[in-house]
């Protein structure tokens, strides 16, 4: 139960961050060049991403022994989660600028012109490419958190619910979701994925954690303290 909830939460939060970035691209293309082609590009990207989850998910789970799968996915999740956490720490400490959806949207709009011709291939390709590339992270998160723990339903549901929530919010406001606390979400997802990665990598090495899956919460606590410590150390005047 804890495991399913944790995996749903990790997949939901991680996917929500990426879906917000993909929405910015689709809105920028749709509002400046018309909606038909960008929506078709988005649809095709979603179908391709769904196929990737099905094909790679099945392939990985059925062909790789469980210990190797946990070690491999755990290592990749650690690298992925620590990269997000590293970036979130630097943003929280003020070293790197916060990601600004409004600015990303304006940049995209300024690069686009008005609709030309009957078939707008530029709009189609931009939406396809934007949604597909942002969606690759969602695919990885869903496969990585759902595979080793045999929690596909929770992971896929987390990814889908996030995509639907972000899409509905985008349709409602017809503007980039600039108020989504993206860095806080990245912080949380970085901690969740790093904890899950550490847990599975160690299980793949043959270790058993005290308290089994509950130890993930202790791991999350340790990584939270470490990242807060990093923010504090970086903000110290001696470094300024």
């Amino acid at each position: 139960m804890y495991q399913q909830a944790f995996i749903f939460g990790a997949a939901f939060l991680g996917s929500a961050v990426e879906a917000t970035e993909a929405l910015t691209i689709v809105l920028a293309v749709g509002l400046t060049r018309g909606w038909r082609e960008p929506l078709l590009g988005t649809l095709l990207a979603i179908v391709l991403l769904g196929l990737l989850v099905l094909v790679f998910g099945q392939l990985i789970v059925t062909t790789i022994p469980e210990w190797a799968l946990k070690l491999l996915v755990g290592t990749l999740l650690l690298l992925f989660g620590l990269r997000w956490l590293h970036k979130a720490v630097l943003r929280s400490a003020g070293v790197v600028a916060m990601h600004d959806e409004e600015r990303a949207y304006q940049d995209a709009v300024s690069r686009l012109g008005e609709t030309v011709g009957r078939r707008d291939w530029v709009g189609f390709v931009l939406a396809l490419k934007g949604v597909f590339l942002e969606g690759l992270e969602v695919v990885f998160i869903v496969i990585a958190v759902g595979g080793p723990g045999h929690a596909w339903t929770a992971a896929i549901a987390g990814g889908l619910v996030a995509a639907v929530v972000v899409a509905v919010a985008g349709v409602a406001v017809r503007a980039p979701l600039a108020r989504v606390p993206e860095n806080t979400l990245k912080f949380a997802v970085g901690i969740l994925l790093t904890s899950l990665g550490t847990f599975w990598a160690a299980e793949g090495m043959g270790a058993s954690w005290p308290g089994d899956f509950l130890s993930i919460f202790a791991l999350a606590g340790i990584f939270l303290v470490a990242s807060q410590l990093a923010v504090t150390v970086i903000r110290r005047p001696a470094l300024a």
Binding site: L78, L82, L85, H86, V89, L90, A93, V95, V96, T194, T198, A202, A207, W209, L219, I222, F223, V225, A226, S227, L229, A230, V233, I234, L239, A240
Partner: peptide, 25 residues
């Protein structure tokens, strides 16, 4: 050994974030 693994991972997070901040400044 798991304690060591977790402590080393947490330490490298602080170390590399601080190093990048110093470099960037």
């Amino acid at each position: 050994a798991l304690v060591l693994l977790v402590l080393l991972l947490a330490t490298q997070l602080v170390w590399f974030a601080r190093a990048e901040a110093t470099r960037s400044r």
